[in-house]
Design a protein around this nucleic acid. Sequence first.
DNA 1: TCTTGACCTTCCCCTAACTGGAGCCCTCAT
DNA 2: ATGAGGGCTCCAGTTAGGGGAAGGTCAAGA
Lengths: 129, 129
Amino acid sequence: MNIGDVSSRSGLPAKTIRYYEDIGLIKPHRSANGYRCFAETDLHKLAFLGRARALGFTIEDCRTLMALYEDESRASADVKQLALEHLAKIEEKIADLQAMHDTLSELVKCCAGDSRPDCPILKDLSGES
Amino acid sequence: MNIGDVSSRSGLPAKTIRYYEDIGLIKPHRSANGYRCFAETDLHKLAFLGRARALGFTIEDCRTLMALYEDESRASADVKQLALEHLAKIEEKIADLQAMHDTLSELVKCCAGDSRPDCPILKDLSGES
DNA sequence: TCTTGACCTTCCCCTAACTGGAGCCCTCAT
DNA sequence: ATGAGGGCTCCAGTTAGGGGAAGGTCAAGA
């Protein structure tokens, strides 16, 4: 398979696939003409990476997950721990965003949003509380 | 004031303050020795920027917000619109993160997390559903 | 056979919002 | 005079790729 085929079958842009090769996540063979030559296992790995990235895992997490996936003697506890740590980061981000959301929506609610200059949002940002 | 004073009074790292000058958000004067020389208004602007950034506004949003703040004839509607657009982006991010969270926590729940290799998280990532 | 268009290659720069560090200068106290 | 603790500029790196240039390859049609 050429990169275009793998791209459409995995849903990942060709750029991303080349990047993943660059950083050593996959190692496709090369044809005589220099084109990358992907096997089914490469496609499978790329799909794995795509799903892990969609769950928000970092590239380094993906590297670890792939290694665990390929290690037949892994302990599921290791996978679970990685997932739990990631989950904690997600929860932290949600909490941060939620706090911003709450503050900002409160300010927005207090802003008339008309043609007059008086604005509680700017007032808050400027420190006049 | 030197940059260290402004840094401790605004809570922003000196590096960040230099960066904000670089991109034109503030324009402190210079002393004869080449040191940045901050006025109270600069400090006030930096505090404004710090609060806006803490609410998740991008630097470009901050630039616009500062311009609105300094424009005595602004319409509060313009501020409110910017805030509402930002709020929408925040909500989108929260929804994305929440979806990741739900999927991942479901997988985690199904994973024994022991010394055996069998792992529903890896199984899901590998596409065996 | 030639050409055209689609595909592939590498290479380099760009993103946001800083952070870290090197190498150097300035000032003040000892 | 010297050492500590500022300050200065400039360069590189961070995440996870995206955009685009310059050029090689391949298959189909005229």
